[in-house]
């Protein structure tokens, strides 16, 4: 990968508490080309915080610091809030976990998707409508014209997530951050949504950061994997080599998962004292 899309060095996210500052991301470094990177870890490992900090979405009193924080030649450290708004959505966008809570309940699908586009580009009403319908078609919604007029409560979970993906991809960003995009969905729909993200990413040559707690899923949909535990990266490897992970935490996570042809009497559990996890 010649041109790095994202270069991060010593990223830290801190929250002040009564007991002093708590670091939830403890100086991690990684970079990303136009590839699919997965960040996995359990709740509280700091994976979502990492994703959010790239968009500078950590609210005060939380603090984000990094020695190097570059996105496609732009120093994110130096961007003002106004400048960040130009980036969010247009260059970097984020798909959230639960479509039920992340879509605006009082806007129709059409208006929500159009809003994402209108914020960054000047288009006529007709062009907007065309683009929205085209995008809905791309995320494989059967009857785009009908669905565009619906409100979020009138669509299913899988459809809602596809609408959110449509909304995030319509300004054609360079980097998509997907934070647990499928954990609120049924197994049968999960694969569809992930295949969809995958196809669109490959087609448009974007970078993807897939944040997930599901190691198996990640192995299928990413090129590289970062395993996080209590704010640190404990292991980096190619997704195809995940089975040969060397760190005891990664191995523990892999072993703790039941298999569809399970024969073990007891599942191995993690000895948490070993890494002083939360």
């Amino acid at each position: 990968m010649s041109q790095k899309l994202l270069e991060i060095e010593d990223l830290r996210v801190t929250f002040p508490t009564h007991q002093g500052d708590v670091e939830v991301v403890k100086g991690i470094s990684f970079d990303l080309g136009r590839e699919r990177l997965a960040i996995v870890g359990e709740s509280g490992s700091g994976k979502s915080m990492t994703g959010r900090s790239i968009l500078k979405l950590i609210r005060s009193p939380g603090r984000v610091t990094a020695k190097k924080f570059m996105f496609d030649g732009i120093d994110l450290n130096k961007q003002s809030e106004r400048q960040m708004r130009q980036l969010r959505g247009a260059r970097i966008s984020m798909v959230m976990q639960d479509p039920k809570f992340s879509l605006n309940p009082v806007l129709t699908i059409q208006d929500q998707i159009a809003e994402a586009l209108r914020t960054h580009q000047k288009l006529t009403k007709k062009e907007l409508d065309e683009k929205v319908l085209h995008m809905l078609d791309q995320v494989r919604i059967n009857d785009p014209a009908r669905v565009a007029k619906l409100y979020p409560h009138e669509v299913s979970g899988g459809m809602g997530q596809r609408i959110m993906i449509a909304m995030m991809l319509i300004p054609e960003p360079d980097l998509l951050i997907a934070d647990e995009p499928t954990s609120a969905l049924d197994v049968s729909v999960q694969a569809q949504v992930l295949d969809l993200i995958d196809n669109l990413i490959q087609e448009k040559g974007m970078g993807l950061i897939l944040i997930s707690h599901d190691l198996n899923l990640v192995a299928n949909y990413a090129d590289r994997v970062l395993v996080m535990n209590s704010g640190e990266i404990v292991e980096q490897c190619n997704a195809s080599e995940l089975q040969n992970a060397t760190h005891p935490y990664t191995q523990g996570l892999l072993a703790a998962m039941p298999r569809i042809d399970e024969t073990r009497e007891e599942l191995p559990t993690l000895d948490r004292t070993q890494w002083a996890a939360t």
Binding site: E42, G252, L253, P258, E266, L267, T269
Partner: peptide
Amino acid sequence: DVSVQAEILNLLK
């Protein structure tokens, strides 16, 4: 989480 799930599944068994 998967690791906690493993503990609870073992317990239930």
